[in-house]
Amino acid sequence: MEHFSTPIVHNAPICERYHVMKLGWPPQFAPPLPGQFLTIQPPPGTGALLRRPFAVSDYDPLLSQIEIVYERRGSVTSHLAACRPGESLDILAPLGKAFPEPTGSARPVLLAGGIGMGPMFFLATSLLSRDTNPVLILGARDSTLIPDLPLFERIDTIIATDDGSRGFHGTSIDALHSFEADGNDMNVEYFACGPMPMLQALAVHAEQTSRKCWVSIEQTMGCAVGACMGCVIPVHGGNGYARVCTEGPIFDSQEIAWT
């Protein structure tokens, strides 16, 4: 975990509302892993107080850069969208637990819902470099929220939109069922990030089919380092709650007490 100021090296929209930002990563720091996140101190003038968490969406060891995908939706992200390369941000990273390695020979199936795509891109890139033949299912409300990325050329990608404006007509979970109905349902393991209803539906499916399922959970955070107990989610066992920032954000879906 490091706290540092670092320059923006790239910042551009990738589709309606979603942007990608690359930031310098001091090479002497331990590299971030897929599933981990960072927090950014709200720049002056945003009127915001707490640091904002963002999942790491890529790490380039050659250029010493990390990347986040963010949605422009509040004062901080609107400010970020207007930042230019060269401006610096105050970063705390890398935070939280990473996705585990896929189990044995299981084929990794990566599900991303909406802005949950960020950490799945990082995991996909990482898995591609290790000959694991992953599948990426990317769900969004409509085609305007689907970026076109070089990554999609390198990985089996299924795009699903709620309104059918691009790719499969339905949710990412519907697309998963369709994919598995086509005979791809043998030995798979799920990795997912997206809205809670999507993650819960996947958790139920994983339980019914006795497959491992890892989910990345989003929660409002205070400190993001495990001190404030503010970002918890209900879990089975322990005292009934786990801190998303330090015990997560990656959880075995069966650990979570879904409501």
């Binding site: 409002t220 107990m229 970002c231 918890v232 009934g240 709650y241």
Partner: peptide, 8 residues
């Protein structure tokens, strides 16, 4: 265990 969520 603390309170139900959200907490902050």
């Amino acid at each position: 265990p603390g309170n139900r969520i959200p907490r902050i």
